[in-house]
Simulated assay, not measured.
Amino acid sequence: MADENCTEVTQFTFSGLTEHPQLKPILFALFLGTYVLTLVGNLGLIALIRVSPQLHTPMYFFLRNLSFLDICYSSTISPKMLLDLPTKNKAISFAGCLTQFYFYAVFATAEIYLLTAMAYDRYVAISKPLLYDFVMSPRICMSLVTMSYLAGLLNATVHTSALLRLSFCGPPVINNFYCDGPPLFVAASTDVRLNEGLMFVFVDFNMVTTNLLILTSYACILVAVGRMGSAAGRRKACSTCTSHLAAVIIFYVSATFNYMQPSSSNSLESKKIASIFYTIIVPMLNPMIYSLRNKEVKHALTSFIRRKMHF
C-alpha cells in the first residue's frame, strides 16, 4: 500500500534558491535582468546573422543555432524560476516536471554537440582553408546540426523514460530550482541505481566524447598555427578560436561539476550554484563573448546601424 500511495504523487515542491526575504527581490531583479539580456542578446545575434550577407558562412550558421539553443534551454528554466522566487509555495506538477527536464536535457545535450561541431569548423577553416567551402558545405553543416539535436533527443528520452519508473512519497521536495536528474534521485523513494547508472554512462559518454573531439580539433589547430609563416596570420587564427574556446570552457567546467559527482543531499547545494551558472549565466554570456571579441560581428552590426540611420 505504501508503494501505491507513493506512485500517486501529482506534484513536486522546489526548495528554491533562498528563503531569505531580503535576498528574494535582489535575486529576482538580477535574474530577470539576466534573462532579458539572454533573450535580447541571442535574438539580436540571430537577426544580425540573418540580415548580414557577410555573416552567411558556416561559422555563423553554427553560431545562429547556438543562440537558438541558448534561448530554448534558458527558457525552460528561467521563467518558472522567476515566478517561484517571490512565492513560498514553489510547486510544479509531475507532468510539468518531466516536461521541463525533457526539454532541458534536449537543449543542453544538443549544445555540447554543437560546440563540438563548431570546433571542427574552426579546425577546417584554419588547417584546410582552400578546402573549407567544400568540406563545410551546407549539407554537411545541416547534418552536424541535425546530429546535435538527435543526440539531445536520445539523451532526454532515455533519462525521462527511466524517471517514469521511480516512485515518490509525497509531498516530495526537490532541492533545486528546476527539475534535474540528481535532485530527483535524492527525492525518490525507490532504488535509483539504474537512473544514476544511466546518468553516469550517458553524461560520461557525452562529455568525454565531445571533449576528446574538441581537444583533437584544437591540437590540430595549434599544429597548423605553428606552421604559419606570418605573425599576423597566427593572430587572426587565434582570434577566431578564442571566443569559441571561452564558451566551451565556461560551459564544460560548470556542467562537469554538476553531473560528474554522485547524487547526495550534501552535494546538492554546491551543484545548485553550478546549475545557476550554466543554465542562466552562460546563455547570457555566449552572445557577448562572440560579439565583443569578433571583428566580423562588430563590423556587421556597425554596417547594419549605418544602413538604418540612412533610412
Rank of each mutant, 00 (worst) to 15 (best):
N155Y: 13
L144T: 01
I71C: 15
T109A: 14
V208W: 09
P171L: 05
S263W: 08
L27V: 13
L164S: 07
S254E: 15
T240N: 13
L85W: 09
Y73V: 01
T242F: 15
L130R: 13
G44W: 03
L215G: 10
L82W: 06
P172R: 03
K128M: 11
A246V: 06
F103W: 15
E4F: 05
A188W: 11
D180P: 03
P183K: 02
G33V: 03
R165E: 12
F177E: 00
A162M: 07
L166V: 04
A247F: 04
V223G: 02
M260N: 15
T216R: 06
K88S: 15
Y252L: 11
F14T: 00
F28C: 08
T240R: 13
S291F: 15
K308M: 15
T157K: 00
Q11V: 00
L69V: 01
S148A: 12
F205C: 10
T38D: 00
C97D: 05
K24F: 06
K88P: 03
D121T: 02
L55Q: 05
L39E: 01
R307P: 07
H159T: 04
F202K: 06
M136H: 00
D3L: 01
R293K: 14
Y102R: 10
L43K: 03
R122I: 05
P182A: 10
A231T: 11
L98G: 00
A117Y: 01
A231S: 10
L32M: 13
L48F: 09
M142Q: 14
L131V: 02
K272A: 03
L213V: 02
R306W: 14
T116C: 13
G44C: 06
M228R: 11
Y120N: 01
N258G: 11
A300W: 01
P262K: 08
Y35C: 09
T57I: 06
L285M: 12
Y35K: 03
L63H: 08
M284V: 08
Y35F: 08
L292Q: 05
R122P: 00
M309I: 14
G33H: 08
T10A: 10
A117E: 00
N195G: 09
T116S: 14
M228G: 07
A232H: 08
Q22S: 14
N42E: 08
A247E: 09
D3K: 04
L150I: 11
Y259V: 04
L292G: 02
A219T: 12
T157M: 07
L153F: 12
K298I: 07
S148G: 10
F62M: 07
L114A: 07
F200V: 05
H159S: 04
A117F: 03
H299G: 07
S264G: 12
M207S: 13
L268T: 06
L166E: 05
V223S: 15
L17F: 02
K272F: 02
H159E: 02
V253I: 14
F107D: 05
I112E: 10
S93R: 07
R235K: 13
L268Q: 09
P283C: 07
T160M: 04
F205K: 06
S143C: 11
F202D: 03
N266L: 14
L213N: 05
L184I: 11
N175Q: 15
H244L: 14
C179S: 12
P287Q: 09
T279K: 04
T99F: 10
I221W: 01
P182H: 09
N155P: 01
Q100G: 09
D204A: 13
V9S: 02
T34I: 15
L215M: 10
N286R: 13
